[in-house]
């Protein structure tokens, strides 16, 4: 034991280290979130928090469960692949509560032109017009039904 007689200062120092380590473990346990490291070096719960956010666009399947007439009309026409909310806007609130949230009818003059205004930059096979020359000031719906826009499909319904 005589070799340890002068080693007291080392034990005190080691004790200090052990104490610091215990404090570190306690603080770490308290500070690091429970799910940290569940999937990797991040908080696993963040994934489910992100997934739980509410949606704003209901998706065309939701629209089509009620508006079957418009869905059928659209399916037969050239706008078959344009989904409802692309023109009507985000309407998840309407889908959740159809009676109290009434959608506003979109402004066709602005919406049609947004896609169909002629520009050399657009793909050549995409139908394009110069609005001022094309309609003579008439609104688009006079001749085109937005849900099935070919001329022979008739005007607004």
């Amino acid at each position: 034991m005589s070799s340890l007689k002068d080693a007291g200062h080392l034990f005190r120092f080691a004790g200090l280290f052990v104490l610091a380590f215990v404090v570190f473990l306690v603080v770490r346990h308290w500070v690091v979130p429970k799910s940290f490291g569940q999937y990797g070096h991040y908080r696993g719960a963040a994934i489910s928090e992100m997934a739980a956010r509410p949606v704003k666009f209901a998706g065309h399947e939701a629209c089509e469960t009620c508006h079957t007439d418009k869905a059928d009309e659209k399916k037969a026409g050239k706008h078959a692949h344009v989904n409802c909310e692309a023109c009507h806007g985000a309407l998840a609130k309407h889908a959740d509560d159809p009676a109290s949230v009434i959608p506003v009818k979109p402004d066709t003059a602005m919406l049609c032109a947004r896609c169909h205004t002629a520009s050399a930059a657009k793909p050549k096979n995409f139908p394009q017009v110069v609005p001022a020359e094309h309609s003579n000031g008439l609104s688009c719906e006079t001749c085109h039904n937005p849900h099935s826009p070919a001329m022979n499909a008739g005007g607004a319904k």
């Binding site: 994934i47 997934a51 509410p54 949606v55 666009f57 998706g59 989904n83 909310e85 692309a86 995409f126």
Partner: peptide, 23 residues
């Protein structure tokens, strides 16, 4: 961009894909 993680985990597509008129 979250790739609309709140939508794709519910079986919906992203907002940008849902609203792209030309696919």
């Amino acid at each position: 961009c979250t790739l609309c993680y709140h939508r794709i985990t519910k079986g919906l597509t992203t907002a940008c894909c849902e609203n792209c008129p030309t696919g």
